[in-house]
């Protein structure tokens, strides 16, 4: 679905300090409903800090934030109900089965038993997982796990899904199948907020922001960014922008 003009995420002057360290330094940006928004940056640029705040897991030091129409300070629980989250490191329970994981997350997101069963069924059918329903997560291949984790993150039809390096270490075919799923979710109207270190994936986003040192150094469509920085690919844009010297955290 082409992104709309309606803002689903609004961030104004977001500041987050840890002691004297400024992890997020006056971030201001919007994400449009239905958009695939790429959130890039060098290691330590402050991406994870921002995502935690957007998901209602951490309070900002200051700034105004509205997520899916809810205020991040006063309506945190509503924010959480309207978003999905998936990270590379952890999202499914290894010692639960495929079905148990779906049921668990469905329950957390407040779906009823009947609803969970029908969605679990549809989800497993779409992924071709019917025969693996009772397999433990630890016994299924990583690529499957990542696809399942994504499906589980949107099992409650959230308005926004946050994907934190969802394709790290995944084989190249599965990585592309994963992006097919992202395109499909966006097509169905779910806003996708995604981080990645694969610069070819940055090209798939409607718009991309690049963070350096806690600030947004650039934000535009991949085409416009390439034009602006006179670079043939997003990889070159990134290399031109990302800071070269390491700073301690």
């Amino acid at each position: 679905m082409p992104a709309t003009t309606e803002n689903i995420i609004t961030v104004r002057n977001l500041v987050k300090r840890f002691g004297s360290f400024v992890a997020n330094d006056h971030l201001t940006f919007e994400v449009k409903k239905g958009e695939i928004f790429g959130f890039l940056g060098a290691n330590g640029a402050g991406k994870t800090t921002t995502i935690k705040i957007l998901c209602g897991l951490s309070y900002p030091t200051s700034g105004e934030l509205s997520i899916a129409g809810f205020d991040i300070y006063t309506q945190r629980e509503k924010v959480k109900k309207n978003i999905g989250y998936m990270s590379q490191r952890f999202s499914l329970y290894d010692d639960l089965t495929v079905y148990e994981n779906i049921r668990f997350y469905g329950g957390i997101y407040g779906l009823g038993k009947k609803e969970i069963d029908s969605r679990a069924h549809a989800l497993m059918q779409r992924l071709g997982f019917e025969t693996s329903r009772n397999k433990l997560i630890r016994d299924i291949p990583l690529g499957w796990k990542q696809k399942l984790a994504f499906s589980v993150a949107i099992v409650h039809n959230p308005k926004i899904v946050f994907l934190d390096e969802p394709t790290g270490g995944v084989d190249p075919i599965t990585r592309r199948q994963f992006w097919d799923m992202i395109f499909e979710a966006a097509h169905d109207g779910i806003t996708v907020f995604v981080t990645t270190h694969y610069m070819d994936e940055a090209e798939y986003c409607d718009r991309v922001s690049i963070m350096t040192d806690g600030r947004i150094a650039a934000l535009d469509t991949p085409d416009n960014l390439k034009r602006q920085f006179n670079a043939p690919s997003m990889n070159d844009v990134f290399v031109k922008l990302a800071r070269r010297e390491e700073k301690p955290i």
Binding site: G41, A42, N43, Q88, E165, G168, G169, H197, M199, N235, F238, V239, A242, R243, R244
Partner: peptide, 11 residues
Amino acid sequence: TTGVDAVSRLE
């Protein structure tokens, strides 16, 4: 270089 950004990978 896993989980390392594109610039640091080059370096």
